[in-house]
């Protein structure tokens, strides 16, 4: 589904990703772990198509399409969803209005009819229950005055509404207490399906107790330096990132 090959990305002229490769198949959940500054957020932003992230070489292929050719909204309409590490506040725009516009924009892209207001209301009610979000939140401005946990739950609600094919969860666990973390993880797990892939970017292993990944990759210095199954995450939890960095620098010296 997603095929990233030897990807080099610069942000304002500074190389951040330096030859990253990653392949995600339908239904798989991949965890990307790594120390701060290793390029984790850059990866999710560049897949989602944020301005200012320049692909200097390599490729990103998504269901057979060259993603770098598409604008951010086109990628979203193709089924790529990014749950933001820092969800943005948009004063005066209600959650509901934004989601309705998003749902219909994607339908239009696929050549489908707009969703009726009644249909939409029913759907959002159902999905809000999934992340235990109260109705009144839907009427409030997007993320404005939300707590950290509420913002993250709102991201998962949006994901549930937009039903992406590929979901990128960028540090979705940051700033959450254990109860909020469980709610968010339950929401994500409910969305797991054989057609939907997920890339979970996180610094800590604890999220992976709740969202169990099929594959774990360690990102350091702009490259994936180690891949394994979920036990790799536990090992990182135990030993920290230091040993990986040592291993990598050892390798680099050797070569």
């Amino acid at each position: 589904m997603l095929k990233v090959q030897d990807l080099h990305v610069s942000v304002f002229g500074t190389p951040i990703l330096k030859g990253l490769s990653l392949e995600v198949n339908p239904g798989e959940v991949h965890a990307i772990m790594g120390p701060n500054g290793s390029g984790k957020s850059t990866l999710s932003n560049v897949i989602a198509g944020r301005d200012g992230y320049e692909v200097t070489s390599g490729s990103i292929e998504y269901i057979g399409k060259d993603l770098t050719e598409l604008e951010a909204d086109e990628r979203a309409c193709e089924g790529i969803f990014l749950a933001f590490q820092y969800p943005v506040e948009i004063p005066g725009v209600s959650n509901m209005a934004m989601l309705k516009a998003a749902v219909n924009s994607m339908r239009k892209y696929r050549g489908e009819d707009e969703m009726s207001a009644a249909e939409f209301l029913q759907l959002i009610k159902k999905k809000a229950e999934l992340v235990q979000m109260k109705q009144e939140f839907l009427k409030r401005s997007v993320n404005e005055g939300f707590s950290g946990g509420e913002k993250k739950r709102n991201e998962i609600l949006q994901m549930a509404m937009l039903e992406p094919t590929l979901a990128l969860l960028d540090e979705t666990d940051s700033g959450l207490d254990i109860d909020a973390l469980k709610v968010v993880a339950d929401g994500v797990n409910a969305l797991r399906s054989p057609e939907r892939s997920m890339v979970v970017v996180t610094h800590y292993q604890r999220l992976l107790d709740y969202i169990v990944p099929d594959h774990v990759h360690v990102l350091a210095n702009g490259q994936i330096v180690k891949s394994g199954d979920k036990s790799l995450a536990l090992e990182l939890e135990e030993r920290g990132y230091g040993w990986i960095e040592d291993e990598v620098s050892g390798l680099q010296e050797a070569s």
Binding site: A48, G49, R50, D51, G52, E71, A72, D73, R75, A76, C77, F81, L82, F84, P87, V88, I90, M98, L99, A101, A102, S105, M106, Y109, Q158, L162
Partner: peptide
């Protein structure tokens, strides 16, 4: 830019 990207990521032109 953040607001713009956020909405475009949700599929809005």
């Amino acid at each position: 830019e953040d607001q713009l990207f956020y909405l475009m990521q949700r599929g809005l032109s």
